[in-house]
Every structure is written in structure tokens, then in C-alpha cells.
Nucleic acid binder design. Sequence first.
DNA 1: ATTTATTGGTTGCATTTTGCAACTGTTGCA
DNA 2: TGCAACAGTTGCAAAATGCAACCAATAAAT
Lengths: 170, 170
Amino acid sequence: MSPKNIDKLNCSIASALDIIGEGWTILILREAFFGSRRFEDFQKHLGIARNILTVRLNKLCDSGVLVRVPIKVGAKRNEYRLTPMGSDLAVILIGLTQWGDRWLNPTQGAPVTFIERATGKAVADIAIFTRDGKKLKPRELAVKPGPGATAETIARLKLIPDVRRKKKKN
Amino acid sequence: MSPKNIDKLNCSIASALDIIGEGWTILILREAFFGSRRFEDFQKHLGIARNILTVRLNKLCDSGVLVRVPIKVGAKRNEYRLTPMGSDLAVILIGLTQWGDRWLNPTQGAPVTFIERATGKAVADIAIFTRDGKKLKPRELAVKPGPGATAETIARLKLIPDVRRKKKKN
DNA sequence: ATTTATTGGTTGCATTTTGCAACTGTTGCA
DNA sequence: TGCAACAGTTGCAAAATGCAACCAATAAAT
């Protein structure tokens, strides 16, 4: 991944990936969701190299996805906990899990299920809805430049209409 | 990322990441959602190295996320299109976009908006629901071993209860 | 029909990132 | 006080990525 490009892409996906797109990072977050808090927890469960884990945890803390909390007041050791910003990634984690379950793991059941804590019941498949509650299929989706779009982005999204390359202008 | 570990993690997130977790892959998919189909489209828009693009496109085709379709019957050149498996990643793409918009881009508006094609109206924020339609906050979520869980996974998920490390058994 | 430009790659080499294993200082606990 | 587990750091080897040049096939222009 080339950081120098990423800034220029004018896209929240790119900025998001700049934080959580590196190798291992999402798995680290998965462990955090699953209850890991301490360096050794992450290391043992993932088998990740310790130096890489250090770098990843630092980055996640710096960017506000995790917080480093001293284990006791004044202690030098600390644990890593999800911030609200980190917990807000649950959608992504669950989305990835469900996608993997659907397309990669169809035979043996899901290894892990996300449930509502209070009732123990599995959550629904994550889906895309309109603001008034209609579920959308992928085909019904489109993309348009938002308020923060650059000229380049706007030009790029012109590609979208289904029929292209019929003629070339300029 | 270490492939040799990934198999052993007994987790659909890991298998999903094995396919879409490498550098650039999600951005390539983003471009596909935005309308890119041909090698040069992806290359120009992302500024990705051409050899890496080749490798990524091959992998995405091999794993069924994209299909290679000849431009004309019998042509050797082809375009890359999202399969249903690929389109099903819309949730992830939109989720990442919205997360980036919320936490990384709050001042200037979203560069890109996902809309319902028919009406042009922006889609709702992706959220987690119970099967009977109640929206869940991250705090209300938990995780439990699914039907395909290994013994190791089951042991791992024991960590979850909020208070830990009170005592150590065994 | 021939030339030219564009497209869709491949190849080789430099740079960067990651993995691995050993080492160091710190803490918790008996 | 001593020992084991914890939380990293360091140095080097291996793998992934970036870059630029090159090549063959196709499409467009003359």
C-alpha cells in the first residue's frame, strides 16, 4: 500500500484503510472484540510477530481505535481497549464474518456467531437500507459525489452509467 | 500477514481477509463498485503498480469475487466485473466509507455518497439488528461459538465475560 | 494496408515490510 | 528473595511491494 497515494484518493474508504487496512490489524481488532486486552493475549491468539504487534497496537492507539489503559493506577503496563471509534467497527467485523460464512464456509457452520448479549439470539445479516427502511439489493445501489468530493472524484464517478466506451470524447 | 497462520484461526474473518485483506484489494473493489472494469481503469485511478494489480486481479478472479469477461467474443482482452460474491461486499465498502466519514472526515463532507439508484436518496447508516428488527448498540453485542467452532475457538471465547483476570485457574 | 497509440500485461531489480528468534527490563506473586 | 510471566526491543533473514522498462495484441488513424 502506498501511503503517498492514499491521501490523494479523496475517499473515506482509503482513509479508513490507512488505519485498519494493514496486515493483521483487523484480526487484532477481532481479538479485541472477542475479549483480548493485553499484549500477550493478542500475541498468543494470533501468533503474530511481537514487533509487528507492537507497531500495530501503537498505530491503533495513535489513531484512536484503541486506548492504552494502565492495568493499575501508576502501572507501566497497560491493556488495550476498544474506544467508541473502535467499537463502531463492529459492523465491519460482523460484515466480514457473515460474508465469509456465506461464500467461503458454506458447508461447516459458522465458527463464531454474533449475538445480542441480553437474549443470546444471533444478530440478523447486515444489510443496506434506505432511510425509510427498505432493504436494497446490490443492483439497486449507485454512487454519487458527496459534499466533500474533489473535481477529480466527480469526474471519476462519471464512469458509473452502465454503458460505456461507446464513444470517446476530446 | 502469514497465510500459514490464517488457516488455523477457525474464523470467517480470517478467511475473508485471506481474499480481500491484502494491500490494494479493497481499493480495487471500490473502483469496481465505482464503475471501473478494465485493467487501465484500475491502474490509472489507483496509481497501483501494474504487476501488483495483475496479481490482485488474478486472485480476485480465482476466488470468485471478480470474473474475467472477454471484451468481445473470442477476444483475448477482458474486463473484470463483480460477481454476486463481489457485489455482496457492498456492505463492507459502505461500512468502511461511513466509518471513515464519521471518524476521520467529520469536517468536510463525505467525498462519496451511496444512494438508491432509483430515487437518488442516500442509504441509511449500516447498523446491526436483531432478527426482529431492533437496532443494537456495540455494547449490546456478544460473541459465541458457532456450529463450526473448534475446541480452541470455544476456549478462546471464554475470555469474553467483562471481568477477567480475577483469578487464574489451572 | 500500414502505421501509430492504447491496452493488458510481464520481467528484473531496488526498497519496504514482515517474520523470527533471541534478548532486556519490568511486574506479580509465592 | 527469587522465579515466572509480561511487554516489549533489536538485528537479521525472507517475503511483499514499488518502479520502470519492455513486449505483444488490439484498435484507431492515414
